[in-house]
Amino acid sequence: MLLYGASGHAKVILSILKAMNQEVTGIFDDDPEKKEIHSIPVVGSYRADFLPNEPMIIAIGNNTIRRQLSGQIRHSFGTAVHPSAQIDTSAQISEGTVVMHGAIVQADARLGRHVILNTAATVDHDCVIGDFVHLAPGVTLCGSVSVGAHTLIGAGSVIAPNLTIGSRCLIASGSVVTTSIPDGAIVRGNPARIINRKSFRTL
């Protein structure tokens, strides 16, 4: 396996892959000051000819950067699921997605491409998670929640059942969402309220 990104997020993914007995053979990063993480060499900026048959995971938490890089990379993409995660056999996990320590994915849930399901986050039955979504540590999605692409749901937030969270939203940490949220909304609070809207021209 190869990684792109040599940050703290990459350290967690390395931990997952080690627990999976998956060898990591190199890490790409554009910062020339970074030389290694946990004895894994940082080999410099991305090169399509470096171990071209090895799958890769983009180890970057920012949804927008992860999306941009995914369109530039020629390698295939792998997945990483920590052994402590509980994944129902009917759930679907797409390429590039990472499921971290203690996370739970229930029956018929679907996780899109390059999703981050962070530590101890819970995705209940029939949820649909779009591409490049980040569910931060301790997030709880109740049943049949839909989350649009590129959305970040902050640590400890709770999303009530049967709601739709739009694309490119930001749900602040600790929010309790009890109504559906439109695209581009920034929400906060308990109950969560829209406090701003993103301009899609800047995304």
Results as ranks from 00 to 15, higher is better:
V139G: 11
S84R: 03
S84T: 15
I181T: 13
L152A: 11
S39W: 03
A160D: 14
T25W: 05
L117W: 00
Q92W: 00
E95W: 00
P161M: 00
A155C: 07
F77T: 09
V177N: 14
P55S: 08
D29Y: 02
E95L: 00
K35E: 13
M56R: 08
I129P: 00
A185G: 12
T202S: 10
D31A: 04
N118T: 02
K198Q: 13
R66C: 05
H9G: 06
S199D: 15
T89R: 05
K34F: 00
S39T: 12
I40F: 07
V147Q: 11
T140E: 09
T202L: 13
S199E: 13
I186E: 07
N190W: 00
S199V: 01
G138R: 12
V187H: 01
M100Q: 13
H134E: 10
A91H: 04
L203I: 12
T119E: 04
P55M: 01
K35P: 03
K11V: 00
G143K: 06
F200Y: 06
V81L: 06
G148W: 06
R188H: 05
I194K: 13
H150L: 08
V81M: 07
L14P: 13
D49C: 06
G112Q: 10
R188E: 10
I116A: 05
Q92C: 04
I73N: 12
V43T: 14
A19I: 06
S70K: 09
Q22S: 09
A59D: 09
E95G: 02
K35W: 04
I129A: 05
T140F: 02
A136D: 14
G96L: 04
L152C: 02
T97F: 02
I60K: 13
R168H: 15
A80S: 13
C127P: 13
F200R: 12
A149D: 14
R193Q: 13
Q68V: 05
A149N: 13
V139I: 10
G130Y: 04
M1R: 09
E95Q: 11
F77L: 12
A185K: 06
G156H: 08
V42W: 07
S199A: 02
R47H: 10
I194D: 14
P41Y: 07
Y4N: 05
I195H: 12
G78P: 09
H134Y: 05
G189S: 07
D49Q: 10
I13W: 08
M56G: 05
A85Q: 11
L69D: 15
V123L: 03
E23R: 08
I73M: 06
N196M: 03
S94K: 12
I194A: 11
S157D: 11
A59S: 14
A120N: 14
S7H: 01
A136K: 02
T25K: 07
E95V: 01
S84G: 09
G71E: 15
V105H: 01
V12P: 03
V145H: 12
R168W: 12
A19S: 15
V177E: 15
P137K: 06
A120M: 07
A192W: 02
M100V: 03
I58L: 09
D31M: 03
T79H: 11
E33S: 11
A149I: 02
N21Q: 14
V123G: 06
G166K: 08
I171T: 14
I104H: 12
R110I: 08
E54P: 03
G26V: 02
I13T: 09
G71V: 04
L17W: 04
L163A: 12
G44H: 10
P182A: 02
